[in-house]
């Protein structure tokens, strides 16, 4: 079961596919407002994350995900489920 600190760098790596060159994500950055992801891109991001961690991420988490930190916290919770 990966920890927050295990998940974070992997999410950074996946996020780089979606963010403009030279823009490095940080934990407090908002996916839409700061990293410029459109709503459809956020859902595409989830598909990539699902493959990486071999989990299914329900769309129901999205209202609680604004920042990179929110996303990683949700993933930590999901990957800890039996």
């Amino acid at each position: 079961m990966p920890s927050y600190q295990d998940i974070l760098p992997q999410v950074y790596e996946i996020l780089r596919q979606f963010t403009p060159e030279g823009k490095s994500p940080t934990e407090d950055m908002e996916l839409v407002a700061d990293l410029g992801l459109a709503s459809m891109q956020v859902m595409e991001l989830l598909l990539e994350i699902e493959d990486q961690f071999d989990v299914s991420v329900p769309l129901n988490i999205l209202p609680d995900v604004k920042t990179v930190k929110d996303l990683v916290t949700q993933l930590e919770h999901i990957t800890s489920q039996p």
Binding site: L46, P58, L59
Partner: peptide
């Protein structure tokens, strides 16, 4: 429709 309901939604 999914958003209005209570089910878990996975793409």
């Amino acid at each position: 429709g999914c958003k209005l309901g209570d089910a878990e939604v996975i793409r």
